[in-house]
Amino acid sequence: MANIAVQRIKRELKEVLNSDEVARCSIHVELVGESFAELKGEIAGPPDTPYEGARFQLEIKIPETYPFNPPKVRFVTKIWHPNVSSVTGAICLDILKHQWAAAMTLRTVLLSLQALLASPEPDDPQDAVVARQCKDKPQIFHLTAQHWANAYAGGPSINTDYENKIRRLKDLGVTEMNARASLSSCDWDLERATEQIFS
């Protein structure tokens, strides 16, 4: 890996580990292996959002040309959000693409992702299904995001209605993950989700 990238990651790690956010456990970064090419990030769901109380793992890959090109960031923890793919975890955020500036850091990237969780942009979606739900049925979107945060990211709110519906599908031999994904995309209409799975 290029020397400039390694030097910068080293300095950034020093910065981020000394930051207030890490002190408040709001964000966290650690190295994966010894090459400085890959890091593991973690952000706390922002307060007053469906993600509150949950923690999301991120995969951060530092390109050879860092900091001239943005790091490649992806959600490892599954999340229900219009700008994050509910399948792959790919993120749609301008600063991770053409709006990247070399003055940005791992810390500002993670804070930007937190801000993205707090203010979804369904008009510039990564996951079209989630985005449509977010626009058309905000109530269901809120509950679904909360449920996913509970199921995958240690969020506190348990939704017994949704749990029951998932159990009904599991009794039919569907895996829990598929059942949750189908029910979520069908606005928790059990009949439609069953049809979607078995057609």
């Binding site: 910065e15 000394n18 700008n83 955020l93 003055a103 810390r107 930007s112 993205l116």
Partner: peptide
């Protein structure tokens, strides 16, 4: 979508350097 502007980072780094 706007990323978090660097104001917070600026203040923080200014503490360090």
């Amino acid at each position: 979508m706007e990323g978090v502007e660097d104001s917070a980072g600026t203040a923080n780094l200014a503490d360090l350097h």
